[in-house]
Computed example of a mutant assay.
Amino acid sequence: MPLSEHEQRMLEQMERALYAEDPKFASALEGSGLRTYTRRRVYQAVAGFLVGIALLMAGMVAKQVWLSVVGFLVMLGCAVLAVTGWRKAPKPGEQPAAGAPHARRQGRQKRSVMDRIEQRWQRRRDEQGGQ
């Protein structure tokens, strides 16, 4: 159920107040954790790919076929990780995927916070409507 215009304005006011009161805390809650996680994962995959190239070259120089094969497999695995990690990374402003490791944890927290906010909002509406 989408928020009404009044509810959206109230939420924006609360966000501005939070930023004004404690900008460090507010920036920590922005939800960039999944993007940071996937970006870090892609960087690790690129580093692993470079290690795979080094192993491949070392195997060729040392004439050790098994080392070259291991290097190729490491490169292949890291390339797959980088591509899948890049595809799963949410765009700025986009909702994270439900199956992502951090998204599950953050999703539960956000849902519970949103549930509490909704309950409080409903109680206020009911109290104001009853008066």
Rank of each mutant, 00 (worst) to 15 (best):
residue 50 L to D: 04
residue 83 V to W: 10
residue 38 T to N: 10
residue 118 E to I: 10
residue 131 Q to A: 15
residue 32 S to R: 00
residue 111 R to T: 07
residue 121 W to T: 08
residue 91 K to L: 15
residue 88 K to W: 15
residue 25 F to L: 06
residue 115 D to Q: 07
residue 30 E to N: 06
residue 2 P to K: 08
residue 91 K to I: 13
residue 124 R to P: 01
residue 112 S to F: 07
residue 118 E to K: 11
residue 78 C to V: 09
residue 21 E to A: 15
residue 123 R to F: 13
residue 53 I to W: 04
residue 71 G to F: 04
residue 107 G to W: 04
residue 52 G to C: 03
residue 49 F to H: 03
residue 47 A to V: 14
residue 58 A to I: 01
residue 90 P to S: 00
residue 87 R to T: 12
residue 119 Q to N: 01
residue 109 Q to E: 09
residue 91 K to N: 13
residue 13 Q to E: 02
residue 93 G to T: 03
residue 115 D to A: 08
residue 72 F to G: 08
residue 10 M to I: 09
residue 35 R to V: 11
residue 17 A to D: 03
residue 63 K to A: 15
residue 45 A to N: 11
residue 14 M to N: 04
residue 70 V to L: 08
residue 31 G to K: 02
residue 86 W to A: 15
residue 11 L to C: 06
residue 15 E to N: 03
residue 54 A to R: 05
residue 68 S to A: 03
residue 93 G to W: 03
residue 107 G to N: 03
residue 40 R to V: 12
residue 54 A to V: 09
residue 22 D to I: 12
residue 121 W to P: 01
residue 82 A to T: 12
residue 111 R to P: 02
residue 43 Y to V: 14
residue 92 P to V: 08
residue 17 A to Q: 06
residue 68 S to Q: 05
residue 42 V to H: 07
residue 50 L to Q: 05
residue 89 A to D: 13
residue 93 G to Y: 03
residue 29 L to Q: 04
residue 68 S to K: 01
residue 117 I to M: 04
residue 6 H to S: 12
residue 95 Q to W: 09
residue 112 S to T: 05
residue 12 E to G: 00
residue 95 Q to K: 12
residue 3 L to S: 08
residue 108 R to E: 04
residue 49 F to M: 11
residue 81 L to M: 14
residue 103 A to C: 02
residue 72 F to W: 10
residue 77 G to H: 10
residue 70 V to Y: 00
residue 118 E to M: 11
residue 102 H to D: 10
residue 96 P to M: 02
residue 46 V to A: 10
residue 7 E to N: 07
residue 39 R to I: 13
residue 38 T to W: 14
residue 98 A to V: 07
residue 73 L to Y: 10
residue 18 L to D: 04
residue 4 S to G: 03
residue 19 Y to F: 05
residue 32 S to K: 03
residue 51 V to A: 12
residue 45 A to F: 14
residue 24 K to N: 09
residue 15 E to C: 02
residue 91 K to D: 14
residue 12 E to C: 05
residue 113 V to G: 00
residue 81 L to V: 10
residue 6 H to D: 08
residue 27 S to A: 09
residue 101 P to D: 00
residue 104 R to Y: 08
residue 130 G to M: 13
residue 16 R to K: 02
residue 20 A to G: 04
residue 53 I to Q: 06
residue 83 V to D: 02
